[in-house]
Nucleic acid binder design. Structure first.
Lengths: 139, 139
DNA sequence: AGTATCAGTGCGACGCTGTATCATTGGATG
DNA sequence: CATCCAATGATACAGCGTCGCACTGATACT
């Protein structure tokens, strides 16, 4: 729910319009607790054009309200960003759950490598694939 | 050139057939020094079916002979893997060059995070985006 | 060497994900 | 409440990759 709250002002402050479709997308996302594809989201919003859903998610991604989650197989899902800031993902291949984490040590290791290579770092991504704790229980 | 050499046996040893199209793809890759898209590769091999190029690259990727390079914009390029083993990428958004690097410290930081979250790690990816040293020269 | 077998190929159709176009609509502002 | 232009919806399109299927040719067996 806090997703919808703080966000409406975010949109306005950034000069974007708060329209009915955008509100609908935000609400749909707030009601979701698992990573979703655009297609899934679009199906749950039959009155909203597919293109608009794509456009809205792209926008929300730029505003760090949702984040892109690249899967191991090359697929893409999205999830509402809990922290709203830079982070990495633990992606469970069993149940599909995605957990965010931040780690200064990890970020520093990345920066260190860039520096060594005299590489001017703009951004980076790091995804961890495997099985989350609940999914490790014996079958 | 070493790409073609060691690889032919790799294919045979793994039970795959060494066919003319696969040889052609390997040679084309050996002649390339920059990351490529399948489409580019396919254009350079007009006698080889597009599907076959896809299939071959998929195979070579599994054998760690080429590696997938996910770009910042979501696009995918491939590059022949120099090390043939686990590594990360420095991806220049200016010239598109891709540099491999390995760093035990980085890998360890990743493993540490997985452990903390009681996450059973299968694999991970880390991509660094920015500008390589030559591209930082004043315009 | 001759032949049988089936992995690999080529072609074209298809599917999925995302974007472009463009006429229409409806928020924000004064 | 009138104006303006960002945003929308519908649809066509583009890119990337896979599928299905008939054919071929590399490998193994005799």
């Amino acid at each position: 729910m806090s997703t919808t709250e703080g966000t409406t002002e975010r949109l306005e402050d950034t000069g974007y319009r708060l329209t009915a479709p955008r509100r609908a997308v935000l609400e749909a996302i707030a009601r979701t607790n698992r990573p979703f594809t655009i297609e899934e989201l679009s199906e749950r919003l039959p009155n909203i054009g597919r293109a608009t859903v794509f456009r809205t998610i792209k926008l929300l991604n730029e505003l760090d309200i949702v984040c892109r989650v690249p899967l191991e197989d090359g697929g893409i899902r999205y999830e509402r960003s809990r922290s709203g800031r830079h982070h990495h993902h633990l992606i469970c291949s069993e149940c599909g759950s995605v957990t965010e984490f931040s780690d200064p040590t990890l970020d520093e290791a990345i920066e260190q490598n860039a520096e060594t290579a005299r590489f001017e770092l703009d951004g980076h991504s790091a995804e961890l694939y495997g099985r989350c704790a609940p999914c490790q229980r014996p079958t």
